[in-house]
């Protein structure tokens, strides 16, 4: 499996799920693909369909309305799939921690492999997260 994981590490296709974010993280994710950062040199491609994805980027707070939908999208993905939580909202619920409709246990909804805190996280931080994921895959 080592050979396959190295292939996987070199071609991570990313699908982006907005789970009720404020859009800041989403804009930063799009910044990743601009010529300045250019993640295509690491083999990363933004795809439009979850069926093509290897990595699922989730932004926003998990509230009771969006959690079942995120779970559904996760179940539609072909395995193996990695979930990266982008932003402070997804990592630690941020200022919404006392909100009435929040889902406190996010890992019960979908297994999250990695958290990238920041409000929003800089593109450099996200690239570092992906690099760490690649490191893990390479063993």
């Amino acid at each position: 499996m080592g050979w396959y994981k190295r292939r996987l590490a070199k071609s991570l296709w990313v699908f982006h799920v907005s789970g009720s974010p404020c859009n800041n993280c989403d804009i930063e994710i799009l910044d990743l693909l601009t010529p300045k950062y250019d993640v295509e040199r690491l083999g990363i491609k933004l795809v439009g369909s979850i069926r093509h994805a290897d990595v699922m980027l989730v932004t926003g707070v998990f509230n009771q309305k969006i959690a079942p939908r995120i779970k559904k999208i996760y179940e539609q993905a072909p395995k193996p799939i990695f979930v990266v939580a982008i932003g402070t909202c997804t990592s630690g619920t941020c200022c919404f921690k006392d909100s009435y409709n929040i889902v406190p246990d996010r890992e019960a909804v979908i297994p999250i492999d990695m958290y990238v805190p920041g409000c929003p996280p800089k593109p450099e931080a996200m690239i570092e997260a992906v690099a760490k994921l690649i490191e893990v895959l390479n063993g």
Partner: peptide
């Protein structure tokens, strides 16, 4: 090539 071999190992839904 990496993309192609990666897709060969993924789950088919």
């Amino acid at each position: 090539f990496n993309d192609f071999f990666k897709l060969l190992g993924k789950e088919t839904i």
